[in-house]
Amino acid sequence: MITPILVYFIIFAYLPMVGMWLAFTKFDFRLGFFKSPFVGLKNFQYLFKSGIFSRLIRNTVLYNVAFLLGGNAAQILCALFLSDLPSKRFVKISQSIIFLPYFISWVLVGLFSYALFNIDNGVINTIFRSLGLSEYNFYLKPQAWPAIIIAIQIWKGLGYGSVVYLSVISGIDQEIYESARIDGASKWQQIANITLPMIKATFVLLVMFNLGSILKGQFQLFYQLVGNNGLLFNVTDIIDTYVYRSLVVNFDIGMGSAAGVFQSVFGCILVLSVNALVKRFSEELALF
């Protein structure tokens, strides 16, 4: 039963992994894939050249952690409400609408956020001015951006993510709730004692999947919101945007692959250790 799946992954995922070899070569079209000269770790150098690499790692990791925690908290909250509000009509409409941002491309999100935050005729500054408050030049000051970026990411993933939790909640046996109610448990107690424990496995699954890609980032999110505004880079630059800026003028196959390999190795080590840790506490929750 599982054979076709294994074959699929061998052919379409494992075979192409030889491509990581490119990260260690200087590619030459005449020589092709395996005969291009081996250059060791030279392709990785540019990552460290600027001396800001540790900051990039910090930003990338912190953003991903914030996306993970904030995103899941919001999604769980929505799922809890949506699964329990009495008006089915309201639930249906609301559920459909919170899925809409998922379909809005990052390009459009970028356009909207400029319309919202710019100093000249941005919505927020217009409101500030009409209230007699002093204006706030978002695009010159980095402080507000982490919050903005995290909020937008949560907003965009809300519908998609809450569907996962909704379907898990809908799978919980109703009898458990009924007996809890008969025992006099309040709504909040039911949530805390029944629902949340039941969705724990899903949350752990999400965490594990995100850890593997903790150094990878939503390139489009950052690129469309911040673009080439260097003033904001200190707090908005992640590895992917840095690599993009470095290579956009002069793309090099080897250097492009090198960044990916670095991110993967880091993620792999992290996941393996966290999985081992999780396994200690609960065999059930571990991924493998």
């Binding site: 294994l6 379409f12 192409p16 992994m17 993967s264």
Partner: peptide
């Protein structure tokens, strides 16, 4: 499970595929 999960960590990039 590990065999499947592992493919999310590493990919060979566009060219070999």
């Amino acid at each position: 499970a590990f065999f499947i999960y592992f493919t999310t960590l590493f990919s060979g990039g566009v060219i070999p595929t």
